[in-house]
Nucleic acid binder design. Structure first.
Lengths: 338, 338
DNA sequence: TTAATTTGCTAAATCGATTAAGCTTAATTA
DNA sequence: TAATTAAGCTTAATCGATTTAGCAAATTAA
């Protein structure tokens, strides 16, 4: 590594002090009353020597790493990948870099990644915490480390959050299925310990009750995070047995697995069963039947999350003052439930 | 931030030197002849004071940041997201963290991201460089910064590379289409300035020629990176006009857009046109017709890439000694071309 | 003419680690 | 008993920046 030039090098070449060089390079010439002539000399020399600041040194001294960490469940899941993408875009507008890790939706990995990133002195976190990570969030708060929770919400701990209106989304999606003359609407859900997911189901219930449709427990299926095609298949078979003519999938991962099952079972969408899925996928336009979806405003969520985090890093929130942004979703209706 | 305890704090509490504490905490007690008793005392105190090393300081001093940077085109593209996922997994086995950025397939952004990461003293790069970034690669080499190029290959500059056998993949995919009795096989391609893509087309040509099928230039379509549905639509309409009964898409993004077009055009897959796509997607199992695909061994590619990069970081390659790993692809044949 | 102020710059501490070199004792050897 | 060697630590420099406090010369004010 052909040794980068440092402030010291520049100072020596110019026969001035390191402080002066540092002031100039940080645009503090005016403030520090460095003469224009000297300012120019330093700037020219810096350019000539191809000076690049060492951010490690800078960060060590200032205590700011200009890096935020993003912990999601799994970047290879398109829903999370989109978050990563938009958060990177937003962060870059603040000249921040993003470092990421996957929790695989386990609180152990989540806690471990938090530790690692704390040691690396990230300035803050954007988190999609797995079930049961309340303690970790409380710990972060005690340590006064800035963070924003996205997509989820933990009732027992107040934090900054950016979520969608899951209740409303579940409610409206179910209404749409009702409008399609479906009488036996099932909901296939996952990670129901998450408030986010509970709200989706709550919205579903409200839509049914409001329309005088009985809520049948046999039509409500909760799967574990570690679900595979088989568990989805079982759930689908069971709700079909109960006479389901409509299904609301609360995640696209569930839905994608579900579609495989439909093909295998010879179920026709939407004739036999109308379908709506949370999270719009590119795939939904080209599935055997195009799929209707609840579209989460991921770009906007990312924008809000980064905005709040930056404000937090700058210490601009009072103690106990938290923003809880709740955004509306949109819907795209395709042949699976027009 | 409740001020983390430092080595200095531990040393003071124990009335010993910082050096001693550092030695113990780095497991060098034996080597540095620190007594067992003292070692235990330090370890206990570190635990008691909840000591967490400051990696910025560590990195500044040692010149190793234990971070690698990954620059891809776009993390929200599932193909790249998978790379990110696997590279993170592999890096973590070496206790390395991954920091990433999207180039959007432009060499300007690519160069800018490289700069930023260099300033942040990453230990090395895993790169999927956009068209025309040879100069940047050469620059990295001059600066002796470790990097590995993945998925692509630039003939004018020798580097470590991990790619698939694109020629073979294009060849075999085309063969399969021929075996399906397709006589007018089209190839819809993108970014043809990339060697990777050229090889896929070359494989396609060879398969045709070997089977005495004329290569018709009207059946070969090259799109620009910034392609949208319209450009794909145009390409599809043109090859259909030329009597195409089979299409090989050289990326899944092209294919996904293509499938939308097929629906709109009322083209039946595989009756009218047989289809194979590079890169297997989750979606391909649930498309109107399940899609056959060239499956890239992304996990393996990531493994090799990280292995090489680590070896490079440890300085274990001789000057001008480069590994060029070329992995075989697999195929999954579904109804679109059985 | 002297004191006060301003201008333009420097010295040195600091961030939190690592590490080469050296300094006391105690133990061993001659 | 004196000279070596080893054991067990410590000192201080260093990585590459930032930043507080202060100094000398030039300028202005009284």
């Amino acid at each position: 590594m052909s040794k980068n030039s440092t402030i010291k090098d520049i100072a020596e070449r110019l026969g001035v002090s390191k402080a002066l060089v540092s002031f100039v390079l940080n645009g503090k010439s005016e403030e520090k009353r460095i003469s224009e002539k000297m300012t120019k000399k330093v700037l020219d020399m810096a350019k000539k020597m191809n000076y690049k600041p060492n951010y490690l040194a800078k960060s060590l001294r200032t205590g700011k790493s200009h890096t935020i960490a993003l912990i999601i469940a799994d970047i290879s899941n398109p829903f999370f990948a989109k978050f990563a993408r938009y958060i990177e875009i937003e962060a870059s507008t603040y000249r921040y870099k993003v470092i990421f890790a996957n929790s695989d939706e386990t609180k152990e990995k989540f806690a471990a990644e938090l530790e690692v990133f704390k040691n690396r002195q990230v300035d803050g976190f954007i988190l999609i915490p797995p079930i049961g990570s309340e303690d970790e969030l409380v710990k972060l708060q005690k340590e006064k480390i800035p963070f924003v929770v996205v997509d989820r919400l933990f009732k027992s701990v107040s934090t900054h959050t950016v979520t969608i209106n899951n209740f409303q989304a579940g409610y409206e999606a179910t209404l749409r299925l009702l409008q399609n003359n479906r009488k036996n609407i099932a909901i296939i859900n996952v990670n129901n310990q998450l408030f986010t997911m509970q709200q989706r189901v709550k919205g579903y219930r409200k839509a049914l009750l409001q329309n005088s449709v009985d809520v049948k427990s046999g039509l409500i299926k909760h799967l574990k995070f570690s679900h595979d095609k088989n568990s989805v298949l079982k759930a689908i078979q069971q709700v079909i047995q109960q006479g389901a003519d409509g299904i609301l999938f609360t995640t696209s991962k569930l839905a994608m697995l579900g579609f495989e099952c439909f093909s295998e079972l010879g179920v026709n969408i939407p004739k036999d069963i109308a379908v709506i899925s949370f999270d719009d996928m590119d795939a939904y336009k080209v599935t055997f039947t195009p799929i209707s979806a609840v579209v989460q405003p991921i770009a906007n969520m990312s924008k809000e999350a980064v905005r709040i985090l930056m404000k937090m890093i700058e210490g601009k929130y009072g103690k106990g003052e938290y923003e809880n942004i709740m955004l509306d979703v949109e819907f795209v209706y395709r042949a699976s439930c027009l």
